[in-house]
Amino acid sequence: MSIQHFRVALIPFFAAFCLPVFAHPETLVKVKDAEDQLGARVGYIELDLNSGKILESFRPEERFPMMSTFKVLLCGAVLSRVDAGQEQLGRRIHYSQNDLVEYSPVTEKHLTDGMTVRELCSAAITMSDNTAANLLLTTIGGPKELTAFLHNMGDHVTRLDRWEPELNEAIPNDERDTTMPAAMATTLRKLLTGELLTLASRQQLIDWMEADKVAGPLLRSALPAGWFIADKSGAGERGSRGIIAALGPDGKPSRIVVIYTTGSQATMDERNRQIAEIGASLIKHW
C-alpha cells in the first residue's frame, strides 16, 4: 500500500482519535458579512469528516447552483462504474471539434489522439474542462443518470439537468442544476469515506481534487503551510461562485467545507476574496 493510499485508508482512524471539535460562531459572522459585502445569498456548511456531524452552517438547506462543483460527483459516478466493471479508466475516447464547448483548455489539445477516461476526469476536476465533463456525462448516460446515481446514494436534493455550459445559467428560483450545502457536503463525505467506492477509487477521487489547479484564489489562499486540501470550485452566471473541499491540518483532511453564493453584482475577484476570507476565519478558529 502506498503512503497516499495509507493516508486515505486511515482518515477515519486518525479522526477518531482527534480531540473533540467545537464550532466557532466567528466564522458564521464572516459568512454573514460576506453576504453584506456581496449583496447576495451565501450558503455555508462545515462537517466533521469522521462523524458527519454538522459543526457550523448557514442557509444549509437553500438551493444554490452547483456550477462546476458537480464534476466531482460526476467522476465519482464514473469511478463507481469502474468498480462495477462497467468502465475502464484506460479506455480512450475520441471526439471532434464539434464536441468542444466553451472553456476546454485540455480537451482542445487532444482532438487528434483523444483522451482516456482517467485523463478526462483529471481534466474535468483539476482544470474544470467543460468538454471533458460533457464527454464523461455521455459515458454514464447524461445528466439524468448522474441525478439517479445521487438518488441511489441517498441524495434526493442534488440534481443535474443540463450539460456544460448551460448548467451554469443560475436563474433565480430555478431548481435545475442545483444542490443544497448540506446535501453536497453529505454526498461528498460519502464519496470520500464511505463504502460506495473502493479504496482505490476513493484515493483516485481525492487525488484529482488535491491536484486542483484553478481554485488557488479561494480556500487555498488562506491555508497555512502543512495543511491538506482537496477541492473543486465552480463559477456561473449572475454572480455565482462555489467551492467544495476536504481539508485539515497535519497533512490530512478532517472536515468537509461547502460554500456557495449566487445573485451578486460583485466582480469575480471580490467573490473570490470573500470566500478566501471565510476560509481564513475557519482556519483561525479551527
Rank of each mutant, 00 (worst) to 15 (best):
P25H: 02
E26Y: 07
V29S: 13
K30W: 15
V31T: 10
V31M: 13
D33V: 11
D33P: 10
A34C: 10
D36M: 03
Q37M: 07
A40V: 09
V42F: 12
V42H: 12
V42G: 09
V42M: 13
Y44G: 03
Y44N: 00
I45G: 09
E46K: 03
L47I: 03
N50P: 06
N50L: 07
S51R: 03
S51P: 01
L55G: 04
S57R: 02
F58Y: 01
P60L: 03
M67K: 06
K71D: 15
L73G: 00
C75Q: 00
C75P: 00
G76A: 06
R81M: 08
D83I: 13
D83N: 02
A84F: 03
A84Q: 05
G85K: 11
Q86P: 07
E87V: 08
Q88M: 01
Q88S: 11
L89C: 02
R91S: 03
R92H: 12
H94Y: 07
Y95C: 06
Y95T: 10
Q97W: 03
D99N: 13
D99E: 05
V101C: 04
V101P: 13
T107R: 02
H110M: 01
T112E: 01
T112H: 02
T112W: 06
T116R: 03
V117F: 01
R118F: 13
C121Y: 00
C121I: 05
S122N: 10
A124I: 01
T126A: 11
T126C: 03
S128Y: 07
N130I: 10
A133N: 02
N134M: 03
L137D: 02
T138V: 07
T138R: 13
T139W: 02
G141C: 02
G141E: 03
G142W: 01
K144C: 01
R162N: 00
P165G: 00
N168W: 09
N168F: 10
A170C: 02
A170H: 00
P172K: 02
R176N: 00
D177Q: 08
T179G: 14
T179A: 15
P181N: 02
A182S: 09
T186S: 03
R189M: 07
R189D: 15
L191D: 09
L192M: 14
T193E: 12
G194W: 02
S201Q: 01
Q204R: 01
L205Q: 05
L205D: 05
I206W: 09
I206T: 12
D207C: 04
W208V: 05
M209D: 07
E210L: 11
D212E: 15
P217S: 12
L218T: 15
R220T: 03
R220G: 14
S221M: 15
L223I: 03
L223E: 05
P224C: 11
A225T: 07
A225G: 08
W227P: 10
I229C: 11
A230Q: 11
D231C: 15
D231N: 14
S233L: 14
A235Y: 14
G236M: 04
S240L: 10
S240N: 03
G242Y: 06
I244S: 12
A246S: 11
L247P: 11
L247Q: 14
G248K: 05
G248N: 10
P249G: 07
K252D: 10
K252E: 10
I256N: 08
V258T: 03
Y260K: 15
T261K: 14
T262F: 08
S264I: 02
Q265F: 03
Q265I: 14
Q265C: 03
E270L: 02
Q274Y: 13
I275A: 10
I275H: 10
A276G: 14
A276S: 11
E277W: 09
G279A: 14
L282A: 13
I283R: 09
I283K: 08
K284E: 03
H285Y: 03
H285Q: 04
